[in-house]
Design a protein around this nucleic acid. Structure first.
Length: 724
DNA sequence: ATACCCTTCATTTTT
DNA sequence: TGAAGGGTAT
């Protein structure tokens, strides 16, 4: 098969445009992955580019793995030297080889959210701050947000004006110090530290700039500030940067993704060529029309209209249900009918919802109807206690300074070492400038710990020391096996209730098997090599596509997937779009647009048929709340929908108003509609376009993006705006 | 050191 | 509704 076979015109152009900045706006189902992989293959096979001079960045391991595999299929050879990976894994790789430049040891640990929380709790406690007033959860989110904006401790402290902010700054500082002492970084740090490395060590940056001639980035709409900078630095010299994304599918702003990265790409890279992939190969016309109609309500977008050669297809089914139980019955009933028709199998059906909590009722319905199902994103494998415990042993063995792993296992399985003894050890370690683990070697100097606890600690120390001594000789899986048996972990598990014990044993076994597989496939069979790999993997592909099961998942998890039949449940105002009180106008509008993009993502997952449902009454948090149909449903043209009731009949007129565009308010003076998208003229700033608005009348605040590139917020009564 | 009750608190989660 | 963390009683 030739690399250019079967591509449409724009795809072909995207593949062949090799030099210079390239922005590929790839609509849902437009063959984006295909273009990316062909492009890499084209570079290698037709342009004689060495694969190790190509750097391809994705967000998930799955995407990275698939990309590599497909490129290898196309080239019919291995691409071992090619750097394809997630932003995080690529950064980790760079940091490991440049560790000393950033004050880390090469074997540093990577902390996930749970580890972060554990460390933060300790920091907050050590500062004698109340966890009530400074909930670690919130502080974690805040620190993460700051990192996503490249705000470091110094900057943050400087900006902290209120007492509360100053306290947060203090925790942020302590937390970073603690990480460093633990020879650890968190997920955000992987990116931030690499960018700082590039900023502070030009010679290192230059080395990597010279190493890669071609950059490719997938899902560019989801990049945050550090990711943006990472790519920008590397592309600085040659500007051979190709980004693929869809602004309409940006659904991770709450995690730091910055839509401006894709919206402003053309300004950031002046001679950018833009290619739109608008032919959709996935969905029927009806489904596409619905998605186009919905997304058109958003203003902050590049603008795209998807089209298809597929038939118009079946109308969208809309069902109003009494409550979530009836909704589940309706969904499962429909699934059975469709299965019985012989046209579809269960694996062709996906059920999507806004919140995980909704899965319970749906699950019940599936069970009652006897429909086999999988839930994606349940408890993740690597987040299970038993798995984390075993990994903590391994991480401590590899990095003895890792105090989070240490605290996790010092008394796991229980060996009679209580919290008090551990915190006394911590105090001692702190005084002596040692890691808690290293302090175990000097127990005789700690008078406050009772002899019994000391003895247990000493035994623990010798045990781990023995593991450490063997680390060089044993394969990763052998060492893990040893740990599972010699620590007494299995015995402890066996004391649990039979069902629980079995499930945990299975997970431990799964981990061991996973390690065996790794060892078989890897040249480097050491523990360090395994840990390097595992710290950034979040779930083993739990999703067996061959089983005939329906899939239940959140709309977020559905991105990138497709199903012949898609059910979107819980389409109620307040639930989807989810509405959180207490946000100001601008943020609210932005949040609404993101919700709409999420709905757009949901709709465009469907190939053949789309089913929508909502419940008039829904139990939420114990209580019951009544709600009306989602405003998003009203954005789908009625003639595409087939429901027992027309929407106009089921929606009281009072509710219906909400789904209509807001009345346009005119300011006095030079009249122009104060709605988003309108062009205005500002005496000082010149021409600009309204991005957002909040408030009413003369007090309305408008966020305006001016032609100079700046975005300002102005109050109508002071701004003296004119129609532009 | 641990078992059990009580309070609190709830979107989404690629790494 | 129910999970998770904290506090108290054993």
């Amino acid at each position: 098969m030739s690399i250019l076979d079967g591509l449409n015109e724009s795809q072909l152009e995207a593949v062949r445009t090799v030099e210079g900045p390239l922005l590929i706006l790839a609509g849902a189902g437009s063959g984006k992955t295909r273009v990316l992989t062909r492009r890499i293959a084209f570079l290698a096979a037709e342009q004689n580019v060495l694969v190790d001079r190509i750097l391809a960045m994705t967000f998930t391991n799955k995407a990275a793995g698939e990309m590599r595999e497909r490129v290898e299929d196309l080239l019919e050879r291995s691409c071992r030297g090619m750097w394809i990976g997630t932003f995080h894994s690529l950064c980790a790789r760079i940091l490991r080889s440049e560790a000393e430049s950033v004050g880390l040891q090469q074997n540093f640990s990577i902390y996930d959210t749970t580890d972060q929380m554990a460390l933060l709790r300790r920091v907050v406690r050590d500062q004698e701050m109340s966890e009530k007033q400074y909930p670690p959860r919130q502080i974690r989110a805040r620190i993460s947000r700051e990192k996503n904006r490249m705000v470091d401790v110094a900057m943050f402290s400087q900006r902290a004006s209120t007492y509360y902010e100053q306290e947060i700054a203090r925790v942020y500082r302590q937390y970073q110090d603690a990480l460093r002492q633990n020879n650890a970084v968190d997920f955000d740090d992987l990116l931030v530290t690499t960018v700082r490395l590039f900023q502070n060590h030009p010679e290192v940056l230059e080395k990597y700039q010279n190493q890669f001639d071609y950059l490719l980035i997938d899902e560019y709409q989801d990049t945050n500030r550090p990711q943006y900078l990472f790519a920008q630095y590397l592309a600085e010299k040659h500007k051979n940067i190709c980004v693929v994304g869809d602004d309409d599918q940006s659904i991770y702003a709450w995690r730091g993704a910055d839509l401006r990265n894709i919206l402003d790409f053309e300004q950031d890279y002046p001679s950018t060529k833009v290619i739109r992939l608008e032919q959709n190969y996935r969905s029927t016309q009806i489904i596409l029309e619905a998605s186009n109609a919905v997304i058109r309500h958003n203003l902050g977008r590049k603008g795209k209209e998807l089209w298809t050669e597929r038939v118009s297809g079946d109308p969208i089914r809309l069902k109003r249900c009494q409550d979530e139980r009836e909704e589940a019955r309706w969904v499962s009933g429909a699934m059975q009918d469709l299965k019985q028709s012989g046209k579809y199998r269960y694996q062709n059906m996906g059920v999507l919802y806004r919140t995980n909590a909704q899965s319970r009722a749906l699950e019940d319905g599936m069970r009652r109807a006897g429909i086999p199902y999988d839930i994606v994103g349940d408890v993740r494998f690597y987040e299970r206690k038993e798995v984390k415990d075993i990994l903590a042993y391994l991480k401590l063995v590899a990095n003895p300074r890792d105090s989070v792993s240490f605290s996790r296992i010092i008394n796991t399985p229980r060996r009679g070492i209580g919290d008090t003894s551990v915190s006394r050890l911590d105090d001692f370690a702190m005084r002596e400038g040692l890691s808690p683990y290293a302090a175990l070697a000097h127990l005789e100097a700690v008078e406050t710990i009772p002899a019994r606890a000391k003895k247990m600690m000493a035994t623990f120390y010798e045990m781990v020391e023995a593991f450490r001594a063997e680390m060089g000789q044993l394969r990763a899986d052998q060492l893990a096996e040893k740990i599972v048996s010699e620590t007494g972990y299995l015995e402890e598990v066996n004391k649990l209730a039979p069902g629980e014990a079995e499930s945990r044993r299975n997970h431990i076994q799964e981990l061991l098997t996973d390690m065996e597989v790794f060892v078989e496939q890897s040249e480097d069979v050491s523990l360090e090599a395994y840990l390097r790999n595992v710290s950034l993997v979040t779930d083993v592909d739990q999703w067996a596509a061959d089983a005939d099961r329906v899939t239940l998942m959140t709309l977020h998890s559905a991105k990138g997937l497709e199903f012949p039949l898609v059910f979107i449940c819980g389409l109620e105002d307040g639930l989807f779009p989810i509405i959180r009180p207490g946000e100001d106008g601008v943020a609210e509008e932005e949040a609404m647009e993101e919700e709409r993009r999420l709905f757009y993502v949901g709709i465009t997952r469907a190939q053949d048929r789309l089913f929508l449902s909502y419940a008039a009454l829904r139990r939420r948090y114990g209580g019951t709340s009544s709600s009306s149909v989602s405003r998003f449903v009203g954005e789908i043209p009625e003639d595409l929908i087939d429901s027992e009731f027309r929407i106009s009949e089921i929606t009281p007129s009072r509710e219906r108003k909400k789904t209509k565009p807001r009345p346009v308010l005119l300011p006095s003076g030079d009249a122009f509609p104060m709605e988003r998208g309108t062009w205005v003229y500002h005496p000082a700033w010149g021409r600009g376009q309204i991005q957002n608005r909040s408030g009413t009348g003369q007090n309305t605040k408008l966020q305006i993006r001016f032609e100079g590139g700046e975005t300002k917020t102005v109050v109508v009564k002071f701004a003296n705006l004119q129609s532009g």
